[in-house]
């Protein structure tokens, strides 16, 4: 039995090195144990060995390791998951792929299905991070505007999502801080850390305009609370400036609709409507009005 202690904060490289060593020693998944310290630096940090990616690599002159590139993509996502089974799951897939080449295409296989479920959950979390990060402006001396966001992802996804924000918000400085790491952009370098960050305390007046928009784009006659919550689960609410309005919007919806109905249609139209009607009648006297 061999035990690998990984840092386990979404870094594919540290797992790959450990997995390669185990595979080269011919250790079956039952003979390997995985742990995540979350703090220590990885044990296999020496140098940067070549990627598995679709190639054959001779290791220690003993054995060739090949994996399809789909495995690299899949395991990169799976290893960002916070479930402690992720290292073992990836190693089991790697082990089985050595003798069962089309394994990844059998998406109904229990291991493959679980890996896809993990990857899907990571993908969803990534998507929600792109959606629910809220930047707040901070004062700055330089020519570029600066923004800071606090977000709480479920998985270790900050590094994989940082590029999206760089491509989108290229012309401003920004920092996204999370308990699972942070990312920052200054126009030249994208810096990513997997250390837990502290929640900053920042106010931004524009949040108030956003709340105004959120409250008014809501149609009280179409209340569908479940539909909202399945897409915007409550766990994200505490960092969304607009979410504090939700309970009141829900509570008052029925009343607002009833009031709308009771008030009914008004008997007189505004003055400009009368003028428009007169103008229309003059230019098209034969046209009947509804």
């Amino acid at each position: 039995m061999k035990r690998f202690e990984l840092r386990g904060r979404g870094d594919y490289g540290e797992w790959r090195d450990a997995a390669r060593e185990a595979l080269c020693q011919g250790l079956s998944p039952r003979e390997v144990e995985w742990g995540a310290t979350g703090t220590q630096a990885g044990l296999f940090d020496t140098g940067l060995p070549p990627d598995f990616r679709g190639e054959t690599a001779e290791i220690g002159g003993r054995r060739a390791v090949t994996v399809p590139s789909a495995f690299v993509e899949l395991s990169k996502a799976v290893l960002c998951h916070s479930d402690p089974r992720r290292f073992d799951l990836c190693y089991r897939l790697l082990w089985r792929l050595q003798t069962d080449k089309p394994l990844l295409r059998v998406v109904t296989d229990p291991d493959v299905a679980l890996a896809h479920a993990f990857a899907k959950s990571v993908g969803r979390d990534t998507h929600k991070m792109k959606a629910f990060v809220r930047f707040r402006e901070i004062p700055t001396q330089g020519p570029r505007r600066a923004f800071v966001a606090w977000f709480e992802p479920e998985h270790f996804i900050v590094a994989r999502t940082a590029g999206f924000f760089q491509r989108r918000f290229n012309d401003m400085d920004w920092l996204i801080a999370t308990p699972k790491g942070s990312a920052a952009w200054d126009g030249e370098t994208l810096r990513v850390s997997d250390e837990a960050a502290e929640k900053p305390d920042i106010r931004d007046e524009t949040d108030d305009l956003w709340r105004t928009y959120f409250a008014n784009i809501f149609n009280p006659a179409r209340l569908k609370v479940q539909a909202m919550q399945s897409e915007m689960p409550k766990k994200y609410w505490k960092n969304l400036p607009e979410a504090e309005l939700i309970p009141d919007l829900i509570r008052s919806a029925e009343h607002r609709v009833r009031e709308m109905k009771e008030r009914g249609a008004s008997d007189t139209a505004p003055k400009f409507h009368e003028r428009l009607q007169q103008r229309a009648d003059q230019s098209a006297p034969n046209r009947s009005r509804v």
């Binding site: 998507h127 792109k130 959606a131 629910f132 959120f214 784009i217 809501f218 149609n219 009280p220 179409r222 209340l223 569908k224 609370v225 479940q226 539909a227 909202m228 897409e231 915007m232 969304l240 607009e242 939700i246 919007l249 829900i250 919806a253």
Partner: peptide, 13 residues
């Protein structure tokens, strides 16, 4: 596309 919020009518914003 990205839905940045959902209103209580279940619609994507």
């Amino acid at each position: 596309g990205i839905c940045h919020a959902y209103a209580p009518d279940g619609r994507c914003i």
